[in-house]
Design a protein around this nucleic acid. Structure first.
Lengths: 205, 205
DNA sequence: GCGTTGTTGTGCAAATTGGCACAAACAAGA
DNA sequence: TCTTGTTTGTGCCAATTTGCACAACAACGC
């Protein structure tokens, strides 16, 4: 089970599997086949079996996969069996929505701090947080040992914010700004510009 | 240039190229090499050249690609050389943020209508729109001929909303709800659950 | 006990995707 | 005009990714 040997495409599907398993569990299922999962996910059953087999033999022939145990295993592999503190930068409309979103905590994440540059916003409330001055970001994030950041600023500020986060020790960035970020190799970035998926679809319309 | 022959991985990179070109254009560049684009994007130069060559020969040896002309061409291929009307369903925090987001229009999209189920919200303002009753969705969307929908409801309502959108003639859905949607083959769905990319990154932390 | 049905894990082949490297094309300066 | 320096488009190969198909195994009814 050498971590470095598991291809990223496989890892990138695990959260999808986990989400489906959690839904199945809420519906009261205790056992689920790759076939059933396939229909709920749009991933082929063979694909699912092959992916899961890279992490161990969780399935039982004739019955399928035990929902709770498999979900636990995936959470362990994804390291979301604990709750990660996250730092949010940029508290506009989107930042507020993120700060108030209830869906993070029970899936492994908690927004622990929020920063902005605008003096009008600093000191105001966002969710249950007080917006802090971005000039204090480095110290605060470093002291708290936070490893994950979310950027919800305009594009023009995003790269500069990314640099601050990297400097403060952040190793994973979720970027909502519509711009590519340049970061060191040991820092991961995922992008959530909503226009990108829209344009991917209009090609086919 | 048979459309059906171009693999989806290639199409899925076009919006990224377009975004980078638009930034380059704002900086005043008139010509850009695949090498330069590569550095701005994190996609290999050979990849970029091969992708672009599937749509025609836009580059000039010795100089690179003409920024404005290539951007125009990509917009044509992605069909974002016009502005698409989009219907938004679910006007909570996220829905509001989307309705007020200024980044859509100049990249090919305009939220033309917003719907919610909650009587408290119906009739209120969201961005420059008035929130409408979801029971009128089918008729309104059909009449306006809208082909693109955005779902920003809780997960529990998302599949039902998707069914309504499909019934109303929508062919592309951007889904913010953390759940897989089942739709007919001729309808495309893209997903933007923020927890998925976060979990993809924690695997490597 | 035994056949029947259902499901996994995996070896192997097919298909897709990415990268290298180079000829051809162009620009610019002498 | 000739030479030098760039950069594209693409043929070819390597690597990755997916899909098929089946042996091995488990449960269940009779």
């Amino acid at each position: 089970m050498d971590k470095s040997k598991i291809p990223h495409v496989v890892v990138s599907r695990l959260p999808i599997y986990l989400r489906a398993l959690e839904h199945a569990q809420q519906e009261g299922l205790t056992c689920i086949s790759s076939q059933e999962l396939s229909e709920r996910l749009g991933v082929s059953a063979a694909q699912i079996r092959k992916d899961l087999s890279m992490f161990g033999e969780y399935g039982k022939q004739g019955r399928g996969y035990p929902v709770a145990a498999l979900a636990d295993a995936l959470r362990r592999h994804l390291q979301v069996d604990k709750v990660w503190d996250v730092v949010l930068v940029g508290v506009g409309d989107l930042g507020h929505a993120l700060a108030r979103y209830k869906g993070f905590t029970h899936r492994g994440f908690r927004i622990a701090m929020a920063f902005d540059r605008d003096p009008e916003k600093i000191g105001t409330q966002a969710g249950d947080l007080i917006v802090e001055d971005i000039r204090t970001l480095a110290r605060r994030v470093q002291e708290a040992g936070i490893k994950i950041g979310m950027i919800a600023t305009p594009a023009a500020a995003a790269q500069e914010v990314a640099n601050m986060l990297v400097f403060a020790g952040v190793k994973a960035i979720l970027n909502y700004a519509p711009i590519h970020l340049t970061v060191p190799d040991d820092v991961r970035v995922e992008y959530l510009d909503p226009v990108i998926p829209l344009q991917r679809m209009t090609y086919y319309l």
